[in-house]
Design a protein around this nucleic acid. Structure first.
Lengths: 107, 107
DNA sequence: TATATTTGCAACCGATTGGTTTCTCTTATC
DNA sequence: GATAAGAGAAACCAATCGGTTGCAAATATA
């Protein structure tokens, strides 16, 4: 099943894993030590993150190092783009323009 | 139950609703017309978006207009901040710095 | 070679999710 | 006043989620 990046970052544990891996590549065991749940539960989260390309794995003997893939995270930033002008500059967006026109009409 | 904004934007229908409302405030019926599922299903999505402050409602007679709240969406942008330098400028982040040090050591 | 470590995979389970249908309430409209 | 329309609330349901335990495979290490 194909995973969605928005679904991937919906879980707080997965967001915490991403914050960890973004600083340094780690093995599943090392990651799991940071959480209360079992290694297998963490491993399932990692699997989901790999499925949607947020993490990449590099085998080293019997250990697997998981690396963060920033390019994929960029997709969320890209989606946010449509809203960014709404909180950065409220006077240039279409909504306030329409409101202005309505107000002008009403007078 | 308190909702999480990341859980709120995890659903594709809810993301589509947000994109709609960001352009113009709308009533539940008007929103529901854009989707295949029932009005009640869409209404539940709206309810979730209101719960986590992504939407605000303004009553007008028997109609309710839902408005987009950009400030709340800013929270996602804030969370992305920790990853932004990783895709914008790979040479200033800690990871590549450590890699450089490792490479230097190996020589 | 025997044993320990690291990891993934499968089965199972209760809670949550997203959908439906049905109902009630409020507000226009005839 | 009677009827229609807009919207929320509740009950129900199949599917998915996040967790667990148990097991198998591959790789170090004694």
């Amino acid at each position: 099943m194909r995973r969605d990046i928005f679904q991937a970052i919906a879980d707080p544990t997965r967001r915490a894993i991403l914050s960890l891996i973004a600083l340094q590549a780690m093995t599943p065991n090392a990651i799991a030590e940071h959480f209360d749940s079992s290694r297998q539960a963490v491993s399932k989260h990692i699997h989901i993150l790999v499925e949607c390309d947020l993490l990449e794995q590099k085998q080293d003997g019997r250990e697997i190092y998981y690396h963060f893939n920033p390019k994929k995270m960029k997709e969320v930033d890209k989606w946010l783009e449509q809203f960014r002008n709404l909180w950065e500059n409220r006077f240039t967006n279409l909504d306030s323009l329409l409101n202005k026109m309505k107000t002008a009409k009403a007078k």
